[in-house]
Nucleic acid binder design. Structure first.
Lengths: 140, 140
DNA sequence: CAGTATCCAACCTGATACTG
DNA sequence: CAGTATCAGGTTGGATACTG
């Protein structure tokens, strides 16, 4: 099915002040750095987790990135970090309410992805076919 | 104010199938590639735009990245690309409904960022102070 | 266990030059 | 105008080794 032509302007919703834009842009860049969302998910799903456990739940993350991601999230107030003064060390991470809220905010994207999953796959396949058959620039 | 301790598990909402996870993860990575969201915003706000115009509305993007971003979005079905067979070339980009919906889905994150803007700044400041005063590893 | 430190390869990106 | 092609710099991320 062809897409309907649209030339009308449509607002995305909230007002778009320039500096809020910059903040949101930064937030989104950080938050969507590939690991943050997965850590949020892991913590939301399993509750409090220790350092290594977070890595296991997330899966496929290097220790370096796990550390970096958790530090970042701690700095931003998305997780709390609790050190139990025992030997060997025992460090617990937990989502803050703010972190949990962010996870919920991302649900919209989750739902979108679920809804358009098939459409995306189809679009990619068609694009691939077009690209194979056609030159990028059509000389009339 | 201190964060309340929470060890309970809380679902983020939709079910979490492994491959949907992967898709969402990929989507988020793409969408947060720094330019995609801004292009969506530009097109949502201004309607159909020509190649150069998109770049102007987005601001600060190189031609290379603009091309790459638009190609990607076209492949995923987020935008349509219409070539008018005239000289000089005239190429129009427009958001698809799917693309527009993605923009709306991200509004949740936008709103979150707006809501917690201050809290994030405060958290970062405090974290900075803690980091300056304390060693990373506390030896009991 | 929970990190830190270092090295290195891959990738991303901008600048520049060229084309239909 | 709307790209493509190439090159160079910076950043990112993984692997590895080491520490309190």
């Amino acid at each position: 099915m062809a897409q309907k032509k649209r030339t009308t302007k449509r607002s995305l919703g909230p007002e778009t002040s320039p500096e809020l834009d910059a903040l949101v842009r930064e937030i989104i860049e950080r938050v969507a750095d590939k690991w943050t969302m997965l850590v949020i998910e892991a913590l939301a799903e399993h509750g409090t987790l220790r350092f290594t456990a977070v890595g296991e739940k997330v899966g496929g993350i290097s220790q370096k990135m796990l550390t970096k991601t958790l530090r970042q999230m701690e700095a931003d107030g998305l997780v709390t970090r609790t050190v139990l003064p025992v030997i060997p060390p025992h460090v617990e991470y937990d989502l803050t309410d703010m972190g949990f809220e962010l996870g919920k905010a991302f649900c919209g994207v989750w739902i979108w992805a679920e809804k358009y999953q098939k459409a995306i796959a189809k679009s990619r396949a068609e694009f691939g076919r077009r690209a194979a058959a056609m030159p990028r620039v059509r000389a009339l």
